[in-house]
Structure formats: structure tokens, C-alpha cells
Amino acid sequence: MANAETASADATPILELQGIGKEFGAIRALHDVDLQVRPGEVIGLMGDNGAGKSTLVKIIAGNFRPTHGEIRFGGNAVHFNRPIDARAVGIEVVYQDLALADNLTAAANVFLGRELKRKFGPIALLDHKAMASRALELFGELRSETRPDDLVKQMSGGQRQAVAIARTRLSNARLVMMDEPTAAISVRQVEQVLGLIHRLKEQGVAVMLISHRMPDVFAVCDRVVVMRRGEKRADKPIHQTSPEEVTALITGAKEAA
């Protein structure tokens, strides 16, 4: 663990935020947030409701434009107008409700919006075989027992997570942000999801995990960032803090660390 950390500390950040601020009319949702994320690093983003976590994720994902500040990705300044712009450079979001179509198969969901096709003269037909075998490969990389041809409707919460995460692997994302992935699933499935995050890390992908669950954050994250009232109050390596301290920071019992 310690080795991995020194290695990633040397690497150049994949994502750098400088002085990010966001106002919605009179509401100041974010104020002067600086953040650096390195390849293969797992960041836990914590904070009370309304602290600004989702707004921060949405700014990085291109849903909102920041009112102040600068975003650098892979060393270059970036300006996203739409989520597609962020996806194009390698930023993917696994949404809380996972954004899966229940009536389609796992493979169909993985490839939704970027289907593999084969040309037959002027018409392009879906290449079911290629999509199924690529999806099986991705599920294999994630160590998830998920069949490409099964309908998502019949799947467990953990398998659904695997499908959503496999989508991000398809595009070779370099930063994956997950908003509350373990909120609505069973304990055994939480294990699976944390396993999936480990797989992403192994492959050099940076992960930002928004979670209210302290055990999850302490199980997989290298670093924890605490937000409160739109400001970053703490940014610490996980082994230099404790659930008690983080809780105090979230509630405001402790102002900053």
C-alpha cells in the first residue's frame, strides 16, 4: 500500500482543479476548490447533503461550467460545454441510478450509443458477436460474474454496477467518478463494487468515489477529501486520518484539517 502511494505521489496529476467556484444566482455552491488527482489514485469525496459534492462532479463531467477557476486534464487546460466534451478526453461518470436500460442485455448496455457495426453494402448492422465477446472480456477484467446476453432487469445490484463500470472501460476512461455507488445494494454486493474499484485502480484509472459510507471509503480510498458548505475542508491520505476525524469534519465539529 505504502509503495503504491509513493509511486502515485510522484506521477503528474491527471486532473487538477484550481480555484473552482460555482454560483447559482445568489447560492454559492462551490468556493475556491483546489484538487489534484493522480493516475491510479482513489479519492473519497465526502460531505453532508448540500456540501457541493455533486456540483463538483458535474463541473468536472461537463454538466456545468464553473463560474471561477480552471480545470486541467492530462496537463492541458480544458473547457467543457457538454458532457460529451468531458467524455471525449476520458472522463466518465457512473451515475447513482446507473443509467442502464433494464430491457436490454448487459452487452447492449455496455455498448449503448457506441454500438459495433458491420457494413453490408450501404447498411450497417449490429455486430452482436463482437459486442458480446468484448463485453465478456471487460466483465472478466472486472472479475464480475456477468453474462453479456442476460437482461439487466434480471441482474443483482453488483452486476449492474459492473455493467455501468464496464461502459467506462470501453472508452478507456482515465478518470471515473462514481456518485453513491453503494447506496442501494446489499453488503455482499458492496464487496463486489469495492472490488471493481480496485480493478480500475490496478489499470491506472483514477477514481473519485462519492459516498456517505465511511467503511467503504476507508476500505478502498487512498485519500479522502471533505467538503463543507461548498469549500474543501480537508484533503488527507487515508492512513493519516480516522473515521472519527472525518465525521467531525463533515458535521463541522472540526473546522479544517
Binding site: 460529451i84 467524455r87 446507473l98 443509467a99 436500460a101 430491457n103 449503448l112 450509443g113 461502459r167
Partner: peptide, 16 residues
């Protein structure tokens, strides 16, 4: 077409 009926928001988010 099927994705739209299954989950319109998902369809939108995936760039359909």
C-alpha cells in the same frame, strides 16, 4: 428505440 423505452434518461446520458 428500445433504450428510449427502457430508460430515457440513460439513453440521454449515453449520448443517444
Amino acid at each position: 428505440v428500445f433504450a428510449l423505452g427502457g430508460n430515457e434518461k440513460a439513453a440521454e446520458l449515453t449520448g443517444i
